[in-house]
């Protein structure tokens, strides 16, 4: 079955890395023309599963097939797009995601954040402005595996991991408008 992520063989006892893995300084806003805005607003979903999908999508958007493909290529080059294609749902493929948080003192933040990042089951990790200042998502093939990662983080870091598994998900759709 679709393993969403695999655990490395040796992890117990490996010391928390000293250097935090911080990245993702985002690109600033990119100026877009009217056609590009139309594409971004109109193509966040519903791309057809047909022989000539770009032709059909382009017609809907009032563009030509080649023009649409060229514009999408350009938006990639500008860093406006991160992906074009099917967005798979890990839950429905037999995996599981669980949101969790920790409340860390400033003095320990970088060390613990880096340790959390180093776990392969951790998919997302954000710093947020709150007493609960570290928010991350554990993703694995089974709930037990996610739980074991959280437990491992607790035992090595000495801080509790607060679990926030979703009980109900409402229609999730990216609707960024430009």
């Amino acid at each position: 079955m679709a393993g969403v992520r695999r655990r490395p063989k040796h992890r117990k006892g490996s010391p928390p890395p000293a250097t935090p893995v911080l990245d993702a300084t985002p690109a600033g806003p990119v100026p877009l023309d009217e056609i590009e805005r139309r594409i971004i607003n109109g193509l966040q979903g519903g791309f057809p599963i047909r022989e000539r999908p770009f032709l059909e999508a382009a017609t809907t958007l009032g563009l030509g097939e080649d023009e649409l493909i060229e514009r999408i290529e350009r938006l990639f080059k500008l860093g406006v797009l991160t992906r074009f294609g099917p967005l798979f749902n890990a839950d429905r493929l037999g995996g599981i995601n669980v949101l969790a948080a920790m409340a860390l003192p400033e003095s320990d933040f970088d060390r613990v954040a880096a340790f959390v990042n180093a776990q392969p089951e951790i998919a997302h990790n954000y710093r947020r402005e709150h007493q609960f200042n570290l928010w991350f998502v554990g993703a694995a093939e089974t709930p037990e595996k996610v739980e074991s990662t959280f437990h491992y983080i607790e035992s090595v870091s000495g801080y509790p991991v607060y679990r926030f598994p979703k009980e109900r998900e409402f229609f999730v759709e990216l609707k960024l408008h430009v």
Binding site: P26, A27, I39, I40, L43, Q44, G45, G46, F47, I49, I72, L75, G79, V80, L81, T82, R83, F84, G85, P86, L87, F88, N89, R92, L93, V172, E173, L174, L176, V178
Partner: peptide, 10 residues
């Protein structure tokens, strides 16, 4: 299993 097919903006 697929949420949607389309572009993912930054």
């Amino acid at each position: 299993a697929i949420r949607r097919i389309g572009l993912v903006p930054n």
